[in-house]
Design a protein around this nucleic acid. Sequence first.
RNA 1: GGCGCUAUCGUCUAGGGGACAAGGACGGGGCCCUCUCAAGGCCCAAACACGGGUUCGAAUCCCGUUAGCGCUACCA
Length: 485
Amino acid sequence: MPSDRQPRLRFAPSPTGYLHVGGARTALINWLYARHFDGKFLLRIEDTDKARSTEESTRAIFDGLGWLGLNWDEEVVYQGANLAAHQRDARLLLERGYAYRCFCTPAELEERRREAESRRESFKYDRRCDRLDVAQIERRVASGEPYVIRFRIPDGTTEWDDLVHERIAFPNKDLDDFVILRSDGTPIYNLAVVSDDVAMGITLVMRGDDHISNTPKQILLYRALGVELPQFAHLPMIHGMDGKKLSKRHGATAVGDYQHQGMLPGAMLNFLALLGWSPGGDREIMTVDEMIQLFSTDGLQKKAAIFDPKKLEWMNGQHLSLVSLSELEPRVTPAIVAAGLATTEQLAARHDWYLQLLDLLRVRARTIDDIVRQAAPYFPVIITYDTDVVGKHWKNRAETADLLASVAKALETARDWDHASLETLLRDLAEAKGLSGGKVFQPLRVALTGLAVSPGIFDVLVLMGRDLALKRVREATVWVTETQQ
RNA sequence: GGCGCUAUCGUCUAGGGGACAAGGACGGGGCCCUCUCAAGGCCCAAACACGGGUUCGAAUCCCGUUAGCGCUACCA
């Protein structure tokens, strides 16, 4: 039984695009299994399709996995490098009589497929080349006629106990004598996968359930090769909101897209894990370590899950507040710098202040981009006033200009620039003017931040500092005065 | 067409014969808190696809139907 060995799992993407969220989910579940059961998680790049594989895609896979923190335990295996082994296995199967040469050309096959279709029959290779006599085969091979190697499907039924589904069975009569080696000597997917999985000592093959129909073919290959079978687990697909397989038209499908949208890797992992796995009960928000600890194949889902970006955002907001500031800082800083608000050096020079700012802003942010947007007013940059907000809180320009001028004057007199003092000062001002707190604080918030959303107004003042705060209020006063009709 | 997989609120899910007039979360609606927003608290609407069995009893087990999805290459 595979269970008495140390579990060895692999994630085997083909480098033909970006790291898709579905792929990332598959990688994550493999990784969680390996980490929970103290096994090994390996990475294999399936680059045998030279035409579609690119180095850029390979890098994107590394980057995506790296960002998510899904580290692999041994050197990356490139399938293309195992060509000789694949050919050797194909040869072996031919010699042992499990496979045979087929001289039918792609054009002939296509023709027969079309005929079958017109007769509304399903096409299956008719094994005509398996009936060729030895002398004829030798003659055709000697003449240099191209041929492929086909695997001969035996009679019977092929079945296995899937870790996610239960028993899955395929009558062998429904299986086709599939090609394992092309006429140019390169291997076909199913052969390459089995050959590599055997070589890598994989004990559990966990992949998307779009591979279910490949599994009986692969099991037959394992048997013919005379090697021990791994366990299989087929994970459900991820669909878009319309229930169709997640694709480009659903918007962001690459892991990198979410990285750039300001998601935290921990939140992404948490969200992806819950798309097809549940720890049971009502548990939802988890750190990576908690997921590893809680992981169990019992919670694996059979049903395809729909990717809901809304829930991802919510979850990211939860993680934004949950992670330590030291973990958050390096995620946010590059975005702050990229937005031109400050340089890394400037942030380092006011480190305590910066952390305080982050701590205050993260409460009401759902993405890192939200934090950056809200952080802008605290840096000496030009801010703009949101039109909707102006219309709401600066409706009467003359009154607003008057109010802001009074606020500025009051703030100038502040002896101590701290929360308590400022609160006393401004509440007194409101009372003197016969206004409710909100009538003063809201217009002031707009003046300071240009936004309707911010931390408590006194925290904003303290964090902004006397000079910048006063500058913002004076500038707002001028702006209000100049824009009134 | 053939083969396979799947089926609980709009979405992610709990549940695995009696604890279910089905629980949690996102999203939606409302209220509270409050200087705003977020967070938080409280409340509301919202689901066992359908039909047969098995059983004293079915969301749960079995069969069928339907629907969705996947595969059906000298792609991976």
